[in-house]
Amino acid sequence: MNTPEPVRIDRRAAIKWMMAAGAGAALLGPRSLLGAPGTAPAHGYGTDPATTKPYSPGDIWPLVLSGAQRREVAALSDVILPAEGGAPSASSVGVTDFIDEWASAPYPDNVEDGRVITAGLAWLEAESVRRHGAVFADLGDAQRLGLCEEMSKDAPEGSAHEAISKFFRLFRNLVCTGYYSTPVGMKDLGYVGNVPLARFEGPPPELVAKLGLADEVRW
């Protein structure tokens, strides 16, 4: 794709970006992120979780997807991010658990996403059986790719395909989030931070020169 689409910054992503940028108070969250005064979900991790302790999906709220649904999640995740070169597939680095955790979480946005995900998985299963006589996880590569291609098509607002398109975008975002936040994902993406350094060196001089920015380096 040579011409990037107009940037639609995801609201939660924007909050993360601005936290990273130090403008900590950027508030772009949807209503449910703010929360109505005095309300909080009953079974989330609460307002004082032990953030330094180890955590695994399922530790705080139960994972609700069935075995069959998890098989579909793993199969679709691996079409979206299959193993390639030395990089492992999505399902092999815990993305299935993450999507189950996301769809099972008690927070309002997650409850809504959970509905989209279970409805999307139900469509995928029914459509796989109708067309090919087997559930998605048991289909061959070409059949999986065919269905994935169809789901990835943009849908006009109000069209019958709109819900499927919405499901695919959400699912794809979650696969990427789940994958690229793992050590192998970060490596694949080229994130090399999160290590203590004696000095912060800034960008490599060759890169600065290549972009014609040497005159900008004043401090």
Binding site: V7, A13, K16, W17, V79, L81, S152, T177
Partner: peptide, 24 residues
């Protein structure tokens, strides 16, 4: 390039629906 987290690999914000090798 901040530490990747929710949505921060950046690609989803462009509205792309790529998958597979192209997504990578």
């Amino acid at each position: 390039r901040g530490m990747p987290g929710y949505g921060s690999y950046g690609d989803d914000s462009r509205g792309s629906t790529s998958y597979g090798r192209r997504l990578r």
